[in-house]
Simulated assay, not measured.
Amino acid sequence: MVGSYLAAAMLCWLGWERFDRREVIAWMMALSLCTLLRAAMFLAYRRTPVNLRTPATWERRYWATLVLSAGVWGIGAVAVMPAGDLMGQALIMLFAVGMSVSAVSCYSSYRNMTLVSIALVLLPSTVWLLLQPSGLQQGIAVAVLVFAFFVASATRSLAQALETAWRLKHEMELAHRLAMVASCTDELTTLNNRRAFFDQARAQHALCRGQRRLVAVLMLDIDHFKQINDTFGHAAGDQVLQRIGAVIKAALREDDIAGRLGGEEFAVLLPDTPQAAACDIAERLRAAIAQLNVSAEHRVTASIGVACASANDTELDTLLSGADKAMYRAKATGRDRVAVVEPVRAAV
């Protein structure tokens, strides 16, 4: 955008004494309007949320401004072409060829854009020269056409190479993102694995500490899980874990963090959650898990421990330890229940 405007301005400056000044002024005014229009489009694009910057929305607008700018450039070059000044004509063709080279560098990954830009910039002046009686003028036009032919041929290979390179780059980025997700996700339940849970929980706890908010932690353990594996097989046990993972995910709010710590043990961090609300969430989880059955005779249950305190006053490990102790108390007092540590510090 800037380059095409500067090229036209430089050409007009160099040919000020050779060109019709009224045509020069009209050309520069038209190019100024095109440049402002393209600049407005780019600013609108930058201000648009990233998720809305799609080719379906913006590519047609970009094409329209590109065609308008290149067309004004090519037609303006013909308009200022001095009929009896071979040096002026050669100067204009030199700049037009330079604009074609810049089109290759700017749009090389989009072959159609490259070809359209070259055609709109070069063809008007080239056709004009071909229609002149002088053999030298026609020779310049033929030389430009030969140059344009070889450039057009080269753009195919260049565009294909760049397209392949970009596709491989995006595939590698996608593979990297998938690998990162896989390294942080428990394969069976699709919850966070132990490492990811602690990393995210510490970050969320630090955020709550900075804002002096409450934090609650739930520790959940499936009752008699070994008996499920021994009686019904490990496949049934894996299915129970998957279903419990789905129950936990369905109960989470946007900022809540859940993970499988190992075996049949799960943890959930609830930011900005008072004890009553944490107990309510824990009770809903317990009731939902109690509706899961391995068989008609064997019901799945879970024991849940709850710990809640101000993040500013309590470390995350202290909360987890308190919730863990409450969970074991729930098991010791009959299982399939929620137990609360209060206060957390007294439990540690």
Rank of each mutant, 00 (worst) to 15 (best):
L31G: 00
R46N: 11
L31S: 01
A26E: 15
R38L: 08
L43F: 15
T54H: 06
V50M: 04
L36K: 07
L37G: 09
V24L: 01
R53A: 12
L33G: 13
R47I: 05
P49C: 03
N51T: 04
R47H: 13
L36F: 13
A30F: 12
F19A: 01
A26L: 13
I25Q: 11
C34A: 14
T35R: 04
A39Q: 09
F19E: 01
P55R: 01
Y45H: 10
W27L: 11
D20L: 09
W27D: 04
W27C: 00
L31E: 01
M28Y: 01
R47D: 10
C34F: 06
L52W: 09
R46Y: 15
I25N: 07
L33M: 14
A39L: 15
L43E: 13
A44W: 05
E23L: 11
R38I: 10
R21F: 08
R18V: 03
A30Y: 10
P49H: 03
W27A: 01
N51G: 07
R22N: 13
T48N: 00
A26Q: 08
W27F: 14
M41P: 00
R22E: 15
A44Q: 08
L37S: 12
V24W: 00
T54P: 06
C34P: 03
N51V: 08
V24P: 01
A40V: 11
R18Y: 01
